[in-house]
């Protein structure tokens, strides 16, 4: 293994410092406001901070592990997300083979294609090949009850959980002149901007949120939270430009795109949860819900960020 890039080490150290501060604040809040565990907001905040420790340590290890670490981590995220998504769909027994294909063939193959950097195939594999082959597998079982709904759900699940998520490790495949060997920092940029935006939207919202943006979809999202979080995240994106191939202005623009896609992605995923009558996608990450609850904004921004960078900076 080669030595990790100093920028990567610096960012990870910075994140750990932020977490340390957050943990101290969480501890003080708990002592002051919720000594007996009765204040739900404080308890949830502390659950979230604890889960962040796990997520950041895992993410850091994967990034230090380089290509193999990142690809495996996101393949597992795809698996967990797909498991959550399919749990909430209308699939029936007749979809059994189509679903088995999705989990055990399509998902590993997509990540394998990313691994061998076959751009021409991984960028169309699920939108074209899986799109055509999965309904065939379902149709052969002969059950036509709610057929279109079922195959549409499976295709949507694969697009969101596998195709879009896989564009995070795909960032390693870009060939940016003068930036060789540092692509892992593009992932850091994307993930940090998305997650900081989410966290700061939550913080700004809790501090001065008044006006609800989408009361029927996501009652906790407010205009004040969104604007405050987005502006802070864009500023942080610009500050991080030193570790990217972008100028500060370009980095701010890309951060804006990432933040907007992440925000609206969160709304779309909330709409699906609403329709299914659940609050969270799962229960695996204490305080956050499921994998999809944490990934939803990354999922929507990753492919757009990937293609913008590929178009603007990459030679492949």
């Amino acid at each position: 293994m080669t030595m990790p890039h100093p920028h990567l080490v610096a960012v990870l150290a910075g994140l750990l410092a932020i977490l340390l501060v957050a943990s101290v604040i969480g501890y003080v809040l708990q002592r002051r406001l919720s000594p007996d565990g009765s204040n739900a907001v404080v308890e949830n905040l502390n659950d979230r901070i604890r889960a962040w420790w796990v997520m950041i340590v895992l993410m850091g290890l994967a990034l230090l592990g380089g290509r193999i670490g990142v690809t495996l981590l996101f393949a597992f995220c795809s698996f967990a997300a797909l498991r959550e998504f399919i749990t909430l769909t209308n699939t029936r027994r007749a979809d059994h083979w189509a679903l088995a294909l999705g989990f055990f063939v399509v998902l590993p193959l997509q990540y394998y294609l990313i691994w061998i950097s076959w751009y021409g195939l991984y960028s169309i594999f699920i939108p074209v090949y899986a799109f055509l082959l999965m309904p065939i597998a379902a149709a052969l079982r002969g059950d036509t009850d709610r057929f279109l709904v079922r195959i549409a759900e499976v295709q949507w699940a694969l697009m969101i959980c596998v195709f879009c998520t896989s564009h995070v490790p795909a960032l390693l495949n870009l060939d940016i002149p003068g930036y060789e060997g540092r692509n892992v920092l593009l992932i850091v940029f994307l993930v940090v901007v998305v997650q900081i935006s989410d966290v700061l939207q939550y913080v700004w919202g809790k501090l001065l949120g008044r006006t609800k943006i989408a009361p029927s979809l996501s009652p906790s999202k407010t205009v004040e939270g969104f604007v405050g979080g987005a502006l802070s995240a864009i500023a942080i994106g610009a500050l991080l430009s030193g570790m990217t191939p972008f100028s500060p202005l370009q980095a701010a623009f890309l951060a804006l795109v990432i933040v907007l896609m992440g925000f609206f992605g969160g709304l779309v995923m909330s709409a699906i949860k609403r329709e299914r009558g659940v609050k969270d996608w799962g229960h695996l990450i204490a305080g956050h819900g499921g994998f999809l609850d944490r990934l939803d904004s990354v999922v929507f921004s990753a492919p757009i960020f990937f293609h913008l960078v590929r178009y603007g900076w990459s030679t492949t």
Binding site: L82, I86, T87, R93, H283
Partner: peptide, 18 residues
């Protein structure tokens, strides 16, 4: 809850579901 969808009677490949 849900295990009937993971592995229905007669199937032998389990589907991952929560």
């Amino acid at each position: 809850d849900n295990l009937n969808r993971v592995m229905p009677k007669g199937e032998f490949v389990p589907i991952p579901l929560i």
